[in-house]
Amino acid sequence: MNHFFRLLPLLTASGLLLGTLGLSATAQADPVSMSAIEQQLSRQAHVEGTFVQKRWLHDMQTTLTSHGHYEFDRGEQVRWTLTSPVQETMTLDDTGMTRNGKPVKDDPGGVARLIMQLLDGDLGALQERFTIALSGTTGHWQARLTPRSDSMKRYLERIDLAGGDQLDTLAMHLANEDRLDIRLDQTQSDS
């Protein structure tokens, strides 16, 4: 039971999934609310696009950049594929996670479940593990997720999400000042 240490990939995955929510554009000037986001989340059935992922290593003042594409079928499966400089595919569905087709049993943060809840528009469930601060408007919003548990806080300071019509960027700020920035470009969506 001492191996709940694989935090990063899962948080990455969670970020990715947040990114694939495909918040549809209902450019409103009202302050954003949980319920507004929840409503938006439940609209698109299929979303896909490309991403650029940058890993910032604070102590080396260096960035490692990678590229890939993603795919999301609402309530069914999320697929995240790294294509350069290395090949790797990560999937997430109701039965859990796989990496390159092999199941990953650990889900230390319970992130997989949280994401599924999120995809179903259940932001209330995310609040069990994070404090969520929303700002901006529904047309241009930001969300700041701060972990509640000490074990997660040891690695992760916060996750910042920002989007307009859809989720555009995700930034994971790690406790050691490293950062993972992901930028998403949606190329296709079906309602």
Binding site: T12, L82, R99
Partner: peptide, 8 residues
Amino acid sequence: KGLFMPDG
């Protein structure tokens, strides 16, 4: 993979 997609 580990360097770009920090695994663990």
